[in-house]
Design a protein around this nucleic acid. Sequence first.
DNA 1: AATGGGGCTTCCCACCGTGGGAAGGTCAAG
DNA 2: CTTGACCTTCCCACGGTGGGAAGCCCCATT
Lengths: 149, 149
Amino acid sequence: MNIGQAAKASGVSAKMIRYYESIGLVPAAARTEAGYRSYGEREVHTLRFIRRARDLGFSADQMTELVALWSDRGRASADVKAIALRHVAELDRKAQELREMSETLKHLAATCHGDGRPDCPIIESLAGEGVPDAAPRAPRGFDRIRTLR
Amino acid sequence: MNIGQAAKASGVSAKMIRYYESIGLVPAAARTEAGYRSYGEREVHTLRFIRRARDLGFSADQMTELVALWSDRGRASADVKAIALRHVAELDRKAQELREMSETLKHLAATCHGDGRPDCPIIESLAGEGVPDAAPRAPRGFDRIRTLR
DNA sequence: AATGGGGCTTCCCACCGTGGGAAGGTCAAG
DNA sequence: CTTGACCTTCCCACGGTGGGAAGCCCCATT
């Protein structure tokens, strides 16, 4: 199976398969004489595993750990659980941050009449006129969130 | 005021001030004879505006729009509100995604006894053994989330 | 007046995960 | 044999942010 087939079968793009190989998340694939990467069921299975972990928001580093634990028959389930729970905490923290940002903005938007007139509490709050630092989002231990695509 | 002072006064790092200038989010600062960037109250005010918007998760592009609206005395508050509400929707969507990932993982972790034994529902679910695609996170219109720091 | 330290400048590099695209080789079907 | 679909590697970009090097500049203390 070539990389394109493996990509379709696993749901991981060919680009990303090569990338995962380059960072050592998956072992280097076997090659045909012509230099084409060659995949079997086993490899596709691994890629699917990775795709599912990725869809759960695990980082490449965490996925490396998970794959290692997966292929270690003698692993302790506690090890897997620990990674998962750490990730859950992280996800919750980020979701909470997003919610707080959303809440603040919703409140501001609610007091903005949103018509053709120029006065707007949203802008005023951002400008801090009279309301200096009124909305201290990202308080301490802040960790801004960035998203992609 | 030099860039370091402006950074302290605004809460935006000198690095980021230069970056914002380079992408046109803020106009190029005046320079001293020696080539140092020079800032006044007005510029610092703008930078603070930007910092607040950033803390609310606005992208550089959105901040550009907001700054433009801010400096447009005749803007319609509806325009600002529209940007804010679009952003709120986006924030909510992302928070929802994170929550779903967290939920899925929490359920998996709950059924993992987390001791020294190797059998682990978390790994099994990722591997898809017997439960192919059991947890279709990021269904359609998926948009994976990435975080920083 | 010289020296030292801290600030400023520009420029490049890195992160992470992903896609785009160019330049060139390969394979299978017509 | 040609054509088109696929594969290869390599570089570039994104968004924001920090790190750091090399080279000025400014001020205060000797």
